[in-house]
Design a protein around this nucleic acid. Sequence first.
DNA 1: CTAGGGTTAG
Length: 458
Amino acid sequence: MAAVKPISPFRLSSLLRLQKDPNIALQLFQNPNPTTQRSKPFRYTLLSYDLIISKLGRAKMLDEIEQILLQLKQDTRIIPKEIIFCNVITYYGRARLPSRALQLFEEMPSFRCERTIKSVNSLLNAFLKCRDFDKMREFFVGIGKYARPDTCSYNILIHSCCVRGSVDHAWELFDEMLKRGLCPNLVTFGTLIYGLCSSLRTKEAFKLKEDMVRVYGIWPNAHVYASLIKGLCGVGELSAALTCKEEMVKTKMKLDSAIYSTLIDGLLKVGRKNEAFGLLEEMESNGCKPDTVTFNVMINWHCKNNDFEAAYRVLDEMADKGCRPDVISYNVIIGGLCRDEKISEANDLFDDMRRRGCVPDVLSYRILFDGFCNGKQFKEAAFILDEMLFHGYAPRCASLHKFINGLCDEGNSELLWTVLNSLGQGNAIDSDSWGMAISLFCNGDKLPAKLVDALSTT
DNA sequence: CTAGGGTTAG
């Protein structure tokens, strides 16, 4: 019987490139030649490592990546490129795992890979994604050990100030980068304009848009316009926002779905429904397809009107057009249903979203928990709370107060007891809530030791 | 895919 020709290292890369399913790609990588005897080890190429890691990264399969990295570390023939590590650090940032991002950065030399400003910046941005500003600052102070900060490093720092709402601090960083001889670029200005607009300082934002052209010869792009338009919508200047859009058309810039979604949302929020729908038609006829965000804007509007049938129809339309609803699409409808006291329908949709492969986030749990509490369905609330804690999420403080108050009012000490235990274990309870709960139990000596411990550390 | 824009609650 003729033996099947074994897969060569070169061919493995082509197969990995073609394979859409990350799990199958992983199997292929781990065992490229299942039928042939393993006389000598398979000689993986750098490209095949690169391909499998990017595939797994896009699928958020981080533990599997860890395995591949271990193999890569031991495969001493290979000198990995820095970009692989930049990418994995980015994946850790997205997954809110700042310590693992830092750990990988520290291990890079043991992979025979040199660290430049690129991986330094990836790490800074991972910290930013995780909103770990302390780690960011601490790392930036010692950054000189690894590399000299560049424009990108400053852009990340400026962005971190903007998301914290301290635009003035962002300006200080801008001055500092100039002093260090670094040139601001389009991203720098885009970020500063974003910060000014988020702080509703639209006048200054427009001034900067002029200055970037006048002083630096850098022209605004769609990112800049999106921030400006959102800022103008935020201060209720819809007409000015529409003028911005006209300016983009005049200067032959392409209107993308972000521009349209922002404007449609702004118009709907001030009740200019016909113009919003007009823009929706215009975007389609301009060859700009509505995406998940555009549909979410529509879903949000329908839910605000308590028109859930229409919201469901948007979900159907998304399916027809091959646009996957995301966690926001579901959260908006679940939240709307809860507000309209259709809690069991909200709970059904919550189950639905998971069946359809959409992972609930902290907000999904909070919305549903609040819904159950408002409807005084404390048993169901306790069930969701348990699940939420299991996933490492905590309820909002005010919700927890309401919940515990509700249980106290009902005199449901049994359920309260169970819930306090989970809360104590999850470290998810503040001292006020403890106080409220404790007051229900007049005899302090009846408290289980674990709760007393937790109380004394709060 | 070293960095920037648009949609969710309160």
